[in-house]
Design a protein around this nucleic acid. Structure first.
Lengths: 302, 302
DNA sequence: TTGAAATGTGAAACTTCTTTTCATATAATA
DNA sequence: TATTATATGAAAAGAAGTTTCACATTTCAA
């Protein structure tokens, strides 16, 4: 029967062996080995990754010795069986392979999987950078403004419309009054209707889009609390804001339109949403549940 | 210029180099597995390092299933035998640093900065998991369908409307004919107008939204190539697709509506976009530049 | 419901892989 | 040269892993 105790015992046994690299162990024992065993050792040293995938038979015929000799060889190396030996060999082989170097540009020759991997890596890096740039103080001021607002309106045009829509969607799950419309003219009218009791969340990658600035000026005239999410702290947009959050990203060839910043912006919005929920949870939770129920109804089961 | 031959050549090269991670593979197949197989998958996900050292019998008694089932399980995961599976598992287990798999819950007592940090962590983990579940083969098939389509239409309702809008926005930068409308009825009409020469990209977190399924059925009737982005590989939606991409995320308290999956979905779209651009770059680049110029005009300085 | 058909499952037969035994060869020593 | 220690491979024995087969369960159409 197999028990947890057993499980952990095996685990430790393995750990003890891994402590010293397999290859080091072979090197260290090398001259104590017999002539045939040296052939095995040599192949394992030269090609650890390949050998680690071989069965004992394959290794036997590859080295021209019997399986018996190999079995004895691994025992002499202090492994309890051949399987343990190949696992350990694979392990050290993996550690030795050159580490993935830091991330270069996307290139036309890249395989599809490479393109995908790089895209994900870039996104992850953007999130990390954005996360590091956040500070408690800004977050606190933003959450207070959001929670106390009579209405929270989202503004975003072009690429940032996606983020604004996302923010609107998320905050629909709270009891707050939220507003968003994709059309510029309507956004501008909405801005004109707002007051000092309201809160505006404005998203713009560059911070220098004409129309977005027009909206911000209108908001400012009305004394609305403005929270800005942008990639450039120096822009007029950032200057006008009560609180500015920066979405940071390494700009890349083909990508000057801030595609990576989008997910950073959305994750900032997500953070704001989570804070709002957790800071006003007793008031919000019932609404959250109700929204969830509505969504469930559009599904054909459960 | 890109050709099919070219695509496949690169495709194979990539496939050989970047194997999909074992854990990603298990996660991606998880809900297609049977009840007993899930037990095996669960233990492998929870304890990859320990499982990788077990014999098939040990794993069988640890999970309470037969060795036969496990043998079939690893074949289903595309490994040629159990040994290959444990080797691969050991390999990916070694690559994962301990900090990467911790998914802390959000708690009401958390400071604002902590909430933000956790939110970003969750997002990063979702991206990582999603990335691991991608495979070259699916990517290649999707890109071919997109590049050769007369029209590429995006479909997404509710929360997924954000992702669909984002995809539409991105692909506007390519010379492809793209289409998206937020309204369900119009999406349905659009689906009815499409043919076997077209390609549909359908996004749905749960894969079981009534309306989305209605659209997919209409698309299917017309023989449209369907690319699905969803979080559940077992859904009817996923079954109907020519290619399915999974956005993976650990579900969390307060978050059952797949908010984290959104950025994963968007990054999948982003990857598809980048592939499309790079695989057809000489044709696309002029258009990309033209779009950029249009955006520049809406700014007050360059 | 009910009865195919499809799918999932474990026991056991079977295959393949690994270890041990044993007979023999080789080298070292007195 | 005889004796002893050591090394080696063939083959038997033993483990590990895979496949088959019969039975159980689920699905789905009537």
């Amino acid at each position: 029967m197999f028990t947890k105790g057993n499980l952990f015992k095996n685990c430790w046994k393995g750990a003890a062996i891994i402590a010293r690299s397999t290859i080091g162990k072979i090197r260290g024992t090398y001259d104590q080995l017999s002539r045939t065993e040296k052939k095995v050792a040599q192949l394992a040293l030269d090609n650890p990754a390949v050998v680690s995938e071989m069965t004992i038979k394959e290794l036997a015929s590859a080295t021209g010795v019997s399986t018996a000799t190999i079995s004895r060889f691994v025992k002499r190396m202090d492994y309890s069986n051949y399987r343990e030996f190949t696992m350990a060999l694979a392990h050290t082989a993996a550690e030795m392979t050159p580490q993935q170097n830091s991330f270069p540009e996307l290139a036309e020759g890249d395989s599809l999987a490479t393109i995908a991997n790089k895209t994900f890596r870039f996104s992850i890096n953007s999130l990390r950078a954005t996360n590091e740039a956040l500070n408690e103080d800004d977050l606190a001021r933003a959450v207070i403004k959001i929670i106390n607002a009579k209405t929270v309106a989202f503004f975003g045009l072009g690429g940032s419309a996606v983020a604004a829509l996302d923010g609107y969607h998320k905050f629909l799950r709270t009891p707050l009054n939220v507003t968003y419309h994709p059309d510029y003219d309507i956004q501008l009218m909405q801005a004109a209707r707002m007051t000092a009791q309201d809160c505006a969340i404005v998203i713009s990658h560059s911070g220098r889009n004409h129309e977005t600035l027009e909206i911000v000026r209108e908001l400012k005239r009305n004394g609305v609390a403005i929270i800005v999410i942008t990639s450039y702290s120096g822009s007029e947009l950032a200057q006008a804001a009560a609180v500015t959050f920066l979405s940071l990203t390494d700009e890349v060839k083909y990508r000057s339109e801030g595609m990576y910043s989008l997910i950073s912006q959305m994750t900032i919005l997500d953070s704001l949403f989570m804070m709002t929920v957790l800071r006003s949870s007793s008031r919000t939770k019932p609404v959250l549940t109700r929204v969830r129920d509505v969504i469930e109804q559009t599904r054909y089961d459960s």
